[in-house]
Amino acid sequence: MNARTPLEARTVAQVMTTDLLTITPEESVLMAWELMCQARIHHLPVVSAEGSFMGVVDAQILMATWESAGPGRARRPVRDLLPGSPLLAVLADDPIPTAARAMLSANTDYVAVIDDDRTLIGLLTAHDLINALAGGPTPQPHPRPSMPSLYRMEPVLPKHRPAERPEAMAHPSRTVISPD
């Protein structure tokens, strides 16, 4: 089938995105936000170390649950944001209307695509559907597999506030953060 085939006659596999950035459930909410900002994505699938699909954290969930009560809350694990309800997922061979109905019934703009072993193989988003409807290019899988993030970012905070260290005020070009 090609782009001239009506969207409702295509399968999820023909339209879904397979080049996914994923995160493990142990990673922090801050890491999820940073990954989404840096990669300019709105959906971040959560996959266990064994490769099991656990859910999706999206920008809306992060914004709704963000707490600015200090760095400790931003370090809570992504696992805390995952819904307790059954996972929203479809199979790659499912027709597009089936996936669209699942998205509508769950009131989301995405649906995870899994295989028979519940392993994540892709994500179908509203953007993917609009792209296919508009005759845009079919997403091409990249040769690299999806993988959890490989780095950790932690904020660096000074041990002392500048007001507590008068020498820092006298020498503004010097840093107040001592090397550890």
Rank of each mutant, 00 (worst) to 15 (best):
L81A: 08
A134R: 12
T17G: 06
R118Q: 15
Q140K: 11
G122S: 05
R165V: 15
P141S: 07
A39F: 04
Q140V: 10
D80W: 03
P71N: 11
A64F: 01
M36G: 08
A89D: 05
H42P: 00
M169C: 04
A112N: 01
L44R: 01
P141M: 03
F53L: 09
T24D: 12
L62C: 03
A9C: 09
D109Q: 13
E164R: 13
A74T: 12
D94H: 14
M147C: 10
D19E: 09
S105W: 11
P143E: 01
Q60G: 08
G84Q: 13
A13K: 09
G84L: 13
M147D: 12
G135D: 06
P45D: 13
T11Q: 14
S48D: 11
A39I: 02
D117G: 04
L35E: 14
C37S: 11
N131E: 12
I61C: 06
D116N: 12
M103C: 05
I177G: 01
L62T: 01
P148C: 03
R144M: 06
T65C: 12
P179K: 07
L157K: 10
M36S: 09
A170M: 14
P97H: 06
P95E: 09
A59V: 09
R165F: 00
P77W: 05
V111P: 01
H43Y: 13
S149W: 07
A39Y: 06
L44P: 02
P95H: 09
A74M: 14
P172H: 08
T22I: 14
A100T: 13
E164D: 15
E50K: 14
L124P: 03
I61H: 01
S28V: 05
V90M: 02
A69T: 13
V12Y: 01
D93T: 11
P71A: 04
P162D: 08
A106K: 04
D180Y: 05
Q14D: 10
A39M: 04
M1F: 02
T24C: 07
L120I: 03
N131D: 11
M63F: 08
R75I: 00
V46S: 01
E8N: 11
